[in-house]
Write a protein that binds this DNA or RNA. Sequence first.
DNA 1: GTGAAAGCGCTAACAT
DNA 2: ATGTTAGCGCTTTCAC
Lengths: 338, 338
Amino acid sequence: MPIEEKKIPVTIQDVAQLANVSPSTVSKVMNDAPHISSSTRERVRAAASKLNFRPNAIARSLKVKRTATLGLITNDLEGVFTMPMMRGVEEAASNQGFSVFMCNSYGEAAREKNHLEVLLDKQVDGLILMSGYKVRERGAPAMSVGTLPLVYLYQYTRDLAVPCVIPDDQGGGYLGTAHLIGLNRRRVGFINGPTDFEQTHQRLEGYRQALSEAGIPFDPTFIKVGRWEESSGYALAHELMSLPQPPDAIFCASDSLAAGALDALHQLGLRVPEDVALLGYDNRPFSAFQRPPLSTIALPLYEMGRLAGELLLKAIAAGTTQAGVHKVPCYMVKRQSC
Amino acid sequence: MPIEEKKIPVTIQDVAQLANVSPSTVSKVMNDAPHISSSTRERVRAAASKLNFRPNAIARSLKVKRTATLGLITNDLEGVFTMPMMRGVEEAASNQGFSVFMCNSYGEAAREKNHLEVLLDKQVDGLILMSGYKVRERGAPAMSVGTLPLVYLYQYTRDLAVPCVIPDDQGGGYLGTAHLIGLNRRRVGFINGPTDFEQTHQRLEGYRQALSEAGIPFDPTFIKVGRWEESSGYALAHELMSLPQPPDAIFCASDSLAAGALDALHQLGLRVPEDVALLGYDNRPFSAFQRPPLSTIALPLYEMGRLAGELLLKAIAAGTTQAGVHKVPCYMVKRQSC
DNA sequence: GTGAAAGCGCTAACAT
DNA sequence: ATGTTAGCGCTTTCAC
């Protein structure tokens, strides 16, 4: 029967004693401070590793008033865009020895406030407020965070002092449309989402820009707007294809819209991409499982998360916040629908 | 030009001073300790809220040696099953005022060790080690965590002392098969994943159990095994349907297998579910986007995460760990493929 | 180059 | 019922 391991943690005192130095010297060694003779440095290192010493970060934080900890509050932990952004944030943070608290507000102000309280109590060094589904404008945090560095991710705000990281949707609209045109499609239809999403305007603007650069006149009858749903894509693709001169390509502002459009095209006996090329937006995982697998404009989610993390870390280190809206370029995922 | 807010935080001292009591009294009030006259209690409360006082959790933790913080390390932050489990953990934790550190090891031992070091340094009260993709057996943590409470999520281990939370795959296999039989299908084919996954045996065992309960003899020619890929599902469904007496239902051990099988069925001109009923497993998001939308056996991911969190919290509170393998029942998601 | 001393903000005996 | 005291484990002047 082994003796009950009482697991009494080893402190800086224990190391000091074993190395025959003062605790403050140990501290200096552990923090690579200058003006330590290499002999004591070695002695201390040896003692520390012999005792398996690891400094208590809580005690350290109390003294230095930094915790190397970030708070990440999302309004939707299962949002379709949440994970790659979280991975980016986590990676940026852990690269610099920071940890991140993950919180889910379910989009409720009360929960957000609650999480903010706890995070502030726990003395996080900075905060990311993220949206998991659609880019939206939002207001201030549910409670004052004082001067704590803050960045909005996949959200934006009127408050010019807080940095926002969002995708470049105009660029994405341009990219997709230009690609379709490059495929020799001159009649490209555009199925958009609801106009109360800023991003739909951006994407459409990119579309117009690509058209104009190619010298193709803008034809309003080619523009359809619906809800972010398959059924909308389905109905609107039918409308588009029953035009006297139907399009030879359809660019949908979301993959779900494109999935619906694909159904419609199949039903009409049209071949994709031969008869009409189809392009989605968002790079939702299901788009790879469509028949044919859907080409799409991808949101740079990982990169956005990473950038948000890096901006925050920089703000923490510098004490100066890199305000403004940061737009990250979308990129194209070529599959077989165009 | 407003004065530079120096944001000097208010401490328990400040409250004590304002309320004309000692710091320890303030502490007692803040922690709802007994033996405090209601008059001072009120006075202190008033002072605290007037100063907007919030106790510094770091200082508190240093003293009480608890941080109300959990560490969650996943091997895959973008694993297809990660998010609902994370949500469950987060919810269980925040319900009890705990926060959770989210870490991504990418399945690399070195990264896991690194995260463990940081988490231990930061004095987390407990740890969850989670797998984001397939249930797998795994060994001990990448470094010793001493007596820190630990639970494995969507993973299991031979170490009988650590609690594991996994889905009840045998129950899921039974549930799906029984459902198909209830639909009057007597000839149900089974397309399984690789035999080196424990879960494939479990699911098959459930299948056999349901058959036997219904008095249907087990027919080995109805069992096919492939990889976890659409192409396997496609090929194996073809094999199944070219049997002299082909099945009238196919149960696939994953949704990707089922997506492939669906392709095959379409190609053969068979109607789903009229000619052959099709059932998937896992409830992957894309399954709702199949044609017809795929019925499937869902993994109880949220519940598993929640249970893991609760087990851990209980272990922390009680100092006693609830060892053993905890199997959470799968449930059926009925859509239109059967 | 090294150590003594003070203290970060809080809690918990122990007195009173 | 309230206050005094002594730390928790570390860092950081400031002496020497």
